[in-house]
């Protein structure tokens, strides 16, 4: 018997329980590469969300029409089409973002998140649920990459979204903006979030036990 999924659960799933960045650990390449400033991180997250939502939509729409043998190339063409659209739109409307994100815009097409959701969700669920899943996952990803960007920009530049936040006497730690900093910051963030997750889960169990008594 198939479990009925509600839109709310599907949406929240992408942001918390199955957050692509911190739980599924997918989409690492753009997360690490583009997170040197919040503006870039947000931009990348939202561009990816756009592609995710639309590709999930189309694939869910056509899920009963696409023959199983050619589903991989079909997914690729759909995803690549929307990536090309995003690429051209950014080039036209926000050229500064297009330039700073550089090669990682066309690389959205190989973002494992999009492929994974197409394969495991959109090809098996209704259009409405798939759009919601795309939105949830995309926003979860945006949240993750923006969080990392905030940490790195704060530590490595003293700014957030370009605005000076740290006091003048703060000496920015330049390595935060370089590759080693990206890896280490994400690792530390993951440790903190995992620990927080465990603490919250523990508290839920304790509360449930107390409620039983």
């Amino acid at each position: 018997m198939k479990q009925k999924k509600s839109i709310g659960t599907v949406f929240k799933n992408g942001i918390f329980a199955e957050n692509p960045t911190f739980r599924l650990v997918l989409g690492m390449c753009p997360t690490l590469a583009v997170s040197t400033a919040v503006f870039q991180g947000l931009g990348m997250g939202l561009a990816t969300t756009f592609v995710l939502v639309f590709s999930n939509f189309v694939i869910a729409l056509l899920r009963n029409i696409i023959p199983d043998k050619v589903r991989i190339p079909a997914f690729i063409v759909v995803i690549a089409t929307f990536v090309t659209i995003v690429d051209l739109m950014l080039k036209a409307f926000i050229p500064s973002l297009s330039e700073s994100l550089g090669i990682f815009i066309p690389l959205i097409v190989v973002n494992c998140i999009i492929f994974a959701r197409a394969e495991s969700f959109a090809s098996k669920n209704s259009v409405l649920l798939s759009i919601t899943d795309g939105l949830g996952m995309g926003l979860g990803f945006t949240l993750g990459i923006s969080l990392l960007s905030a940490c790195r920009e704060l530590l490595g530049n003293g700014t957030l979204l370009g605005i000076q936040v740290m006091p003048e006497s703060f000496q920015p730690m330049a390595i935060a903006l370089r590759p080693p900093g990206g890896f280490i910051m994400l690792g530390i963030l993951l440790i903190i979030i995992n620990a927080a997750g465990k603490a919250i889960a523990k508290r839920k169990v304790m509360k449930a036990k107390e409620a039983e008594l």
């Binding site: 650990v25 390595i175 370089r178 590759p179 080693p180 900093g181 990206g182 890896f183 280490i184 994400l186 690792g187 530390i188 993951l190 440790i191 995992n194 620990a195």
Partner: peptide, 21 residues
């Protein structure tokens, strides 16, 4: 325990990246 899996791998990769700098 909390270094198990990805966190440990990421931090190790970060240190490796320091060497490559």
């Amino acid at each position: 325990k909390w270094m198990d899996g990805f966190p440990g791998a990421l931090i190790a990769a970060g240190l490796m990246a320091v060497a490559f700098q």
